[in-house]
């Protein structure tokens, strides 16, 4: 299966697709929330639409001596990073940007999120968002290095940093089968850069919403959508790098990618409600003492297999 780069005219379509899948994730989250509240699921499914209507009708607000340019950059940064991430993910046989360094590009975009969340926390000149920003950086120090090595594993196995090649290398066996540790670490890191679930402390209730505290109206909308978009982009990348991308019987390649992305996304959304938040300072020890050595071992195993096969 070869991947062809489509013309730039398709970029809005790709962006719209990302937003639609992200909205579906928000719907699922709303439905699960309605279920635990004992409310009809239908209302929960409408959550993204209703919340959008509410926030678009709400006034924006500023705070005293806010650093507005940086705050705005941070607020828009999450969605921007997510859009740039999916640019390199092949949608079946097509891709928006067929970069030779696709894996590194994804990694670079996830580091961009560091800046975005920090600026969104710094900008309002308010204590709670600032603490949210601190926490994100503390947490990022824990998940980022394991994530980088987890991304190395599929690249080593495929012998290429181009995502099209990574997908092609999985025509026989999905990478998740022989790199389960890298896949698990990757999924935790997706939750990390999406400020999601157990790694949601930077936006958690202990800081009254963290980086979200002072955001209202369209700013809050951008932050929320950015979070869901990052989660979606992470799931799409995970489906591509570990779950075989477009490979699968009967269905066309693009549909397989969509199904796998949706499945991984649904698991991430469902896990959020089932797990409490981990305090960032607690995360450092297991991340550096358990996850990092394990994922290095994983890369070693993959490398040995590749060398032996060659």
């Amino acid at each position: 299966m070869t991947v062809t780069e489509v013309s730039a005219g398709w970029v809005p379509v790709a962006a719209a697709l990302l937003l639609v899948v992200a909205a579906a994730a928000a719907s699922l989250d709303g439905a699960l929330a309605a279920r635990s509240a004992g409310q009809p699921l239908g209302g929960g499914l409408l959550t993204p639409v209703a919340e959008t209507a509410r926030l678009f009708g709400q006034r924006r607000r500023t705070t005293v001596a806010a650093d507005l340019p940086l705050q705005r950059i941070g607020t828009a940064g999450l969605l921007t990073a997510a859009l740039l991430m999916v640019a390199v993910v092949p949608f079946g046989r097509w891709t928006v940007a067929d970069l030779t360094v696709g894996v590194v590009w994804f990694n670079a975009m996830d580091v961009l999120v560091w800046a975005a969340v920090w600026l969104a926390g710094w900008g309002p000149n308010s204590a709670h968002p600032l603490v949210g920003g601190y926490r994100f950086l503390a947490q990022a120090l824990s998940y980022e290095l394991p994530l980088m090595f987890a991304l190395t594993a599929p690249a080593v196995a495929a012998g290429s940093l181009r995502l099209g090649d990574v997908v092609a290398a999985q025509s026989g066996l999905w990478f998740v089968v022989w790199m389960p540790v890298a896949f698990a670490v990757f999924c935790v890191a997706v939750a990390g850069f999406s400020v999601w679930g157990p790694l949601g402390a930077p936006a958690g209730a202990t800081t009254a919403g963290g980086v979200f505290v002072e955001a209202a109206g369209v700013d809050r909308w951008l932050l929320s959508v950015g979070r869901y978009a990052l989660l979606t982009a992470g799931a799409a990348f995970g489906a591509t790098a570990f779950l075989g991308g477009g490979h699968g019987p009967l269905l066309p390649a693009w549909l397989w990618l969509l199904v796998k992305t949706a499945a991984l996304l649904a698991v991430l959304v469902a896990l959020r409600r089932r797990l409490p938040v981990v305090r960032p300072e607690q995360l450092a020890a297991p991340a550096w003492l358990v996850a990092l050595p394990l994922v290095l071992l994983q890369v070693l195993v993959v490398s040995v297999v590749v060398v032996v096969q060659a």
């Binding site: 509240a37 409310q39 009254a208 919403g209 979200f212 955001a215 809050r220």
Partner: peptide
């Protein structure tokens, strides 16, 4: 609030 499908706010900026 819950039975109406409403939400509890985290902060004043979040609230209607």
């Amino acid at each position: 609030a819950r039975t109406r499908g409403w939400r509890l706010a985290d902060s004043p900026a979040d609230a209607d």
